[in-house]
Structures are given as C-alpha cells and as structure tokens.
Design a protein around this nucleic acid. Structure first.
Length: 675
DNA sequence: CTGCCTCGAGTTCG
DNA sequence: CTCGAGGCAG
C-alpha cells in the first residue's frame, strides 16, 4: 500500500466516524472546521491521485444513516449539500467554472443570489393540496428522519399555504429551509435552564438540532424554534418561477418566512461585496450565520450546470472564518488584579479561531467555573464572539475521560500566600493583603495608564520591574525616582531613563480627577473621580470630608462614600498623599461650573464603533466640552448614538429603541447647531 | 422591593 | 464588550 493510499484510508475512516457521530448520535466530536479540513484534504488527494478514488468514499455522499427513534423520511429529490469556498479567490474560481461549464464568455457576468447561511438544521416540508403533510430532516440527503409532529410546533412554518396573488398555487411542493433558534430565544432558554440547574447549551445550533429531535413534540415547542425557507425540491405547479430570486418571492407569497437579507447581484463582484458586508455585520443579526450561500440566479442555467457527485455545480457555500473551536484545557491559573481580585483563566492548548491563535481565555470566577462544570483536562468549546475576547463556553462532557476533579479556587493568594476573602453573595474572591506584590504591580500600572496619569513608558513591564526591584512600593515613589535608581533596572539605559523621567514630570499636571482615578479607590472610576474632584476641589478637602459630606455628591451612595472615607483614613495612604504633594503633583481641580452650557447641554450620547477621523477620547472630549455626557450603554435616556465602522450591539439596541443615530459628520453638525 | 440606568473592573491578541 | 453591582426612582 502506498503512503497516499494509507492517508486516504485514514481520512475516510475519520470522516465516516465523524459523520456517524454527527448525524446518528447527534454528538459531534470534532468541529465543523476540522471536519471540513478532513473532507477537503481527501477531495484534494482523490483529485491528485485518481487511483485511490473509491465509489464508497465519503466524498461521494452526504451523511450517515438515519437514527433510530424516528421513522425514515424519504426525500423525493435528494437534498444536496454544498461545496465550500473560503476566501475571495475561491469565489472567483467558482464564477469562472460556472462560466466555463455554462458556455458563457469570460467577460460576461453571471447573476447570483446571495443568501445568509443560517446556522441551524436543514429540513424539508411536504405540502399536498396546500396542506403540510410531512416534514423531515436532511439526514444523508436521500433519507432523513420524519419529524413532522415537531416541525408543526414551529410557529413560522405555515400549516396551510397562502394563495399567491398572481402566481398559481402548487398542487404539491417540497419546501426546503433552515430550522434555527434565535439568539434571543437561545439566551432565554439557557437562562431558564441555568435557573433550573439543567446543563446549558453551547450554541443555538445545538439547541435547535436537539429541539427538532425531541421525541415529545411538546419539548420541541418549548424551544421556540424559527424557520426560513430558501429552496424547493419537487414541485408540481403550472409556470414555476424561472429564477432563484423569483422563487424566494414565490415562497414568501405562499406564506413562508424568507430571510429578508437575500440579494440578487449582477456579477461575482457583487457576491464578494455582499460577503464582506455580512461578515462584518453578522453580530447585528438575531440568529447565527456561518457564511453565505451563493446560487446561480437563472434556474435554466442551474439545470444546465447540473451536479457532480454530491455537490451542485451552480451553488457554493462561502464560509466565514470560524469563531468557535474545541481544544484542551491544560490548566487553570489565577491572576491577582489591582483590587486584589483572584481572576482564574484557562491555559489552553493553542488553537486557531478566526485567524488568531488563542492560548488563554478568562474564566471569570469560581461561580462561572462551577456553573459550567469546567475541569482541568476537559476538551472545552472556546468562542470568539462579536468582540475579540475569547471565552470558554463549557466542556464537551462526552469527551471527558476518567475522573476529573472539579476546580476549586485556592484559599491562599497564589502570589503572596495571604488569606483570601470571599464575601457572601459576591462573585469575586479577594487577596486580603494590600501589600501583595501583584496588587502593587497592578496599581502602579493602573496609575500610569492612559485614563489616569498617562505616564508614557510605564506599562506592564516597567511597573513590574519597579515594584519587584523595591524601587516603588506605592505610586508616590514614582515621583521620587532618579536616573541612578532607574539605571539599576534591566533593559534601561540613559536614553530611556531620561524619557521615563520626562514622562513622569509631565504627569504631575494632570489634576485631581485623573489622580483620584489613578489611586484606584474601590468604586471610584473615571466618572466618580471627576464628580468628586469637581465637588471638593482639592485632595485635602476630600480627605477631610466625612461620609455624610461625600454622600452629597451626585451618584455617590453609601458604599462608595464608605470606600472613599476608608481610603483616606488609612495612615499609609495619608503618607502617600503627602509624598505626592511634596513631589509637586497637582492635587487640585477647578470647582465644577454650574449648569453646563453648550450645544449639547444635558444630553447623553453613546459612542459605538470606530469613527473615521476622531478617536473615542477625542469624540468624548468634544461632546463634554459642548456640555454633553457620554455614557457606555444605550437606554431610553440616550439622546443620540454616534456610530462608526463595525458598530456592534449598541447600534442594534438604538435602532430597537428608535434613538437617532449619527455618523461622525452628523455629530459635528450637532456640535455646531445643537440639534 | 424591583427594575432601570449607570459605572467599575477585567479581558486577549497583535 | 460583558458582567456584576451600586444608586435611585417608582
């Protein structure tokens, strides 16, 4: 046996196993991407070495045998699967092949219909004389499972067809589409399951697939599934639609929900554009999509192109970059934050998700780990959702081998060994030692950070170096550094030492608001710091204030007042403040002017996405200078939302609440006119 | 007491 | 961006 044959056989075995687990057991053990990669390799191999091709190769069929539990559902015409395309090149190659096989000149364009590829479960619905008579899953493409009773529970599936206004009604039709779960329904379902203490679902697709295959239709109904129609199989009607987009319109007339974002484009350029647009906007949708389905619009041309093996030659599935993967949880380690919080994070076997390699991911706190039953040694699902930040969703329980111990957060600080405090009812555990080196490092880093004293050159590395070398114990020591001391640090020569000292000097003038924020008093972030600075005017006045006086300030309640008073009551903190003053740090602030004037007086704005020319900070400054306020979340009280590129959920929320949305130009107009 | 509306804190990779 | 939690109005 040649090496190529051996590899091909291996691939076939692995793919068959994956098919069986996916279709029959409903329990996939490899991700869709891994599966695609295997299939792709086998396809390439068979193409390059025709001698290893076999008629029973998994490349020649779609899936596995139907599972027990449901009667078989025989498709009148096979439900095809689609070849995948990744990247623009493969789309262009698809177009070129369509033209070649369709006998179309290269410089002419082919019209396509682009449809979002919903991440759900493909199903087929049979209507006789206008009434839903049966429905089944795709299964292996020719035979699926008869899940008629369950499909009937999906409210958006019509039980009887509507009579089209102009077109004739079909005597018989098989309608194909996707059963799926909305993200909002998914969130509700999981929240409810969490409350009941039942295992949550990793994603909407799993919840939908599981829902369709419930033996009790009532259980399906409780999942609140939805449906989009996108194709027909067998159809018996006079004058059937002649194009895919006409077909979609026809389905809509028959009473089916059809995804509103489908678009007909004149050429492959339009496809490329559509794909890019939706890859960027996928998070705005209330359902998961994993790509775009591209179909030749002319049905006559579709017929002419035909199919090869299992794949039609007139359609292709463009797959977005994956954002979910499985990998092994090697270890759980703990960071200690600025406020002493113990932050567990996952150490993962590195895995590529959406173009980046992920090796760490946050686990939030003990509660999160326990609720999701995440254990070291588990294979876990990791996602990179709308944001960039990876998250461990949960373990793949079926893959758990042997006995794994539930994780318990250490009861001693992993950095300094001090006792850990976990107050009743709070999510976070805290190291009780204020002098904990980890906390000191983080406090220095925070103090020097952009929103605080903004000392350029003092970041992670230098902050750690300063604390570990003993040069800096609290932030006031920063202002008592000199060249001689700095030069004792590694990677620090005269030039960089001078830069750092200059940056430190410049930071003395930042004013009380930023200083207060920089001190890292619990509950005092940028906003509260600005309020306190404006009300008290100097750090001495603030230090002298009692809790009662602090409570007078807007937005300052008991907890915050207590925290502030406690900070200034501690002798080491008082000493630190004296040393800051000695060094010439500005500890005063202009008293807040009365009623803010300006074009945006009293208005609250929310920023989202990236603006073309302004940074977030600059935009905030402009708005504040005009008397407005910038808030982080959209609510009924929001006056305007300023949306830039790649705006996320906040834009969607604003649309939902009917709040006016501006772009950067609109913001500038508003600053001048005042709306 | 409940349900908004905020703010604070922490997060990863390139 | 998300989650937790403080502040406050009803």
């Amino acid at each position: 046996m040649t090496a190529v044959e051996r590899r091909a056989n291996r691939l076939r075995a692995a793919i068959e196993e994956a098919n069986y687990r996916y279709h029959v057991l409903d329990d996939p053990q490899i991700s869709d991407q891994e599966y695609d990669a295997l299939l792709r390799e086998l396809l390439d191999l068979e193409q390059a070495h025709p001698e290893v091709w076999r008629a029973d190769s998994p490349t020649q069929r779609v899936g596995g045998a139907p599972a027990a539990g449901f009667p078989p559902y025989v498709h009148a015409r096979p439900m095809l699967s689609l070849a995948n395309a990744f990247g623009e090149d493969e789309l262009l190659a698809f177009d070129a092949r369509v033209k070649k096989l369709g006998g179309i000149a290269e410089r002419e364009s082919v019209a396509y219909v682009c449809e979002l590829k919903i991440d759900g479960l493909a199903v087929s619905l049979r209507y006789d004389e206008g009434t839903l008579s049966a429905g089944g899953t795709r299964g292996d493409g020719s035979v699926g499972e008869d899940v008629t009773a369950n499909l009937r529970t999906i409210r958006s599936i019509p039980l009887t067809l509507r009579r089209p206004a102009k077109a004739p009604a079909p005597r018989h039709v098989d309608v194909r589409g996707e059963a799926y779960m909305r993200k909002s329904d998914f969130a509700r379902l999981n929240a409810e399951r969490e409350e009941r203490g039942v295992a949550t679902f990793a994603n909407p697709r799993n919840a939908a697939a599981g829902g369709i295959r419930q033996l009790d239709p009532k259980a399906t109904a409780e999942r609140s599934l939805s449906f989009f129609a996108y194709a027909v199989g067998e159809i018996d009607v006079d004058a059937p639609p002649a194009t895919q987009h006409a077909l979609l319109a026809y389905l809509r007339e028959l009473g089916f929900p059809v995804n509103p974002n489908a678009e007909r484009v004149d050429s492959i350029r339009g496809v490329v554009d559509y794909v890019a647009r939706w890859e960027a906007r996928r998070d705005e949708l209330d359902y998961e999509i994993d790509g775009v389905v591209v179909k030749v619009d002319e049905l006559a041309l579709q017929t002419r192109l035909g199919s090869v093996g299992k794949d039609p030659r007139w359609a292709v599935a463009y797959k977005f970059r994956a954002r979910e993967a499985r990998t092994k949880l090697l270890d759980i380690q703990v960071n200690v934050g600025r406020t002493g919080t113990l932050n567990p994070f996952a150490v993962l076997e590195p895995v590529r998700i959406g173009g980046v390699t992920v090796s760490n991911a946050t686990l939030h706190n003990q509660e999160y780990i326990t609720a999701n039953d995440i254990r070291v040694g588990d294979v876990v699902t990791v996602i990179r959702a709308g944001d960039v930040i990876p998250r461990v969703v949960g373990p793949v329980k079926e893959l758990r081998k042997g006995k794994l111990r539930p994780y318990v957060l250490p009861d001693r600080c992993p950095v300094c060994g001090s006792a850990v405090d976990h107050p009743e009812g709070e999510a976070m555990s805290r190291c009780t030692n204020a002098a904990c080196p980890a906390q000191q490092r983080e406090r220095v880093r925070h103090f020097a950070s952009r929103g605080a004293m903004d000392i350029e050159g003092v970041g992670d590395q230098l902050a750690a170096g300063l604390v570990d070398s003993g040069l800096v114990r609290d932030v006031s020591d920063i202002y008592h550094l000199d060249e001689e001391k700095l030069l004792t640090l590694p990677r620090m020569a005269e030039k960089s030492a001078a830069n750092v000292l200059a940056a430190i000097e410049a930071s003395k003038k930042r004013g009380l608001a930023r200083l207060l924020f920089g001190l890292g008093i619990r509950f005092v972030g940028g906003q509260n710091a600005a309020i306190l600075a404006g009300d008290f005017g100097s750090i001495d006045a603030l230090a002298a204030a009692g809790e009662a006086e602090l409570l007078e300030s807007e937005g300052i309640g008991e907890q915050i007042a207590r925290s502030v008073a406690l900070f200034f009551a501690q002798p080491p903190n008082r000493a630190m403040i004296e040393r800051l003053k000695d060094a010439g740090v500005d500890v005063t602030a202009p008293r807040r002017e009365r009623a803010p004037a300006g074009a945006l007086a009293g208005k609250t704005l929310v920023l989202t996405g990236t603006l073309p020319t302004l940074t977030r900070d600059e935009a905030t400054e402009l708005i504040v200078n005009a008397g407005g306020k910038v808030s982080g979340s959209v609510s009924k009280k929001t006056a305007y939302v300023v949306a830039g590129d790649e705006a996320g959920s906040k834009l969607a929320k604003a649309e939902q609440l009917g709040i006016p949305i501006l772009d950067e130009a609109g913001l500038r107009d508003l600053l001048v006119s005042g709306g």
